[in-house]
Amino acid sequence: MIIAKNIYKSFGKVSVLNGISCEIKKGEKVVIIGPSGSGKSTFLRCMNLLETPTNGEIWFDDKLINEVDPYLHDDLIEKSNTCKKLIQSNIDTESALLKIKEEKLLKKYEGKEFRLAVKEFTKANHIDINFARRKVGMVFQHFNLFNNLTVLQNLTLAPVQLKIKTKEQAEEKAMALLKRIGLEEKANAYPSTLSGGQKQRIAIIRALAMEPDVMLFDEPTSALDPEMVGEVLELMKDLANEGMTMVVVTHEMGFAKEVASRILFMDGGVIKEENSPKEFFSNPKDLRLKEFLSKVL
């Protein structure tokens, strides 16, 4: 469903992600854990392009959502002037490709043929990010409910603006979702009057109102009072049981153990270990992970 290919991300001179590849399959619940500053939130935000990767590609439902990364496509590299020159100087194609990829030799302008090939590839595979985002729900650490709108308006804004539903349909759906979390009476309240737990549960159903195929959670319980963490995790577990595809960045080890179908451990902008929850907790291999687990468990 989501495929990340060799993602690099740097902010100025600070590199946060250093080559991450991973695939999220339909129905999977992938939990990403790791120390702060390990790049897990940045990686999650790359999946719906809230952060644009510096290098690498993100594919959603077999469609490319960011720019083509030519280093991932041998057939594109072969069309570049640099590659042609290397081959002319008696290097075989294979080692020329290898050299270009390793030393990042592609320049801004690589000839007409290369440019056309990139254009054609883009045309065949790329979709507009705004379309992809309709199907990728996102839940933030700080809820980010729209402060100028009521709860009901928060839930209906996107479906109505994007002409996916009529106002009536959207409101009906919104009320059904509110009923599900037991907050119907808050429909006309403004976010400023809600508790953290209520805000986050409404943020979750705001994403659900778009009927997404996958949900991304960026530390959804980190900004909550301890006594409100439970209600949010319950809702997330319900979603998981219904078969929603989920990617969750969290520090809640209990949740990871119980819900995850796969856990990724990130550190220093790379995936250090990737395993089923059982293996992950009982038999960690990476040294840094062992150290991390010994501190948090």
């Binding site: 719906n48 809230l50 705004n130 379309f131 985002r133 309709r134 990728v136 729900g137 996102m138 933030f140 700080h142 980010n144 409910l145 729209f146 402060n147 100028n148 709108l149 804004l157 996107a158 603006q161 994007l162 943020a203 705001r206 994403a207 778009m210």
Partner: peptide, 30 residues
């Protein structure tokens, strides 16, 4: 206006103009 407000709008699939007009500007005016 908090950056999270426009991020939430964009994450739902609204484009930049829609996010500005419906979410950011009303809060900025206030």
């Amino acid at each position: 206006v908090d950056k999270g407000q426009s991020e939430a709008g964009r994450a739902l699939g609204l484009n930049n103009t829609q996010t500005m007009l419906k979410i950011v500007v009303p809060q900025a005016v206030k």
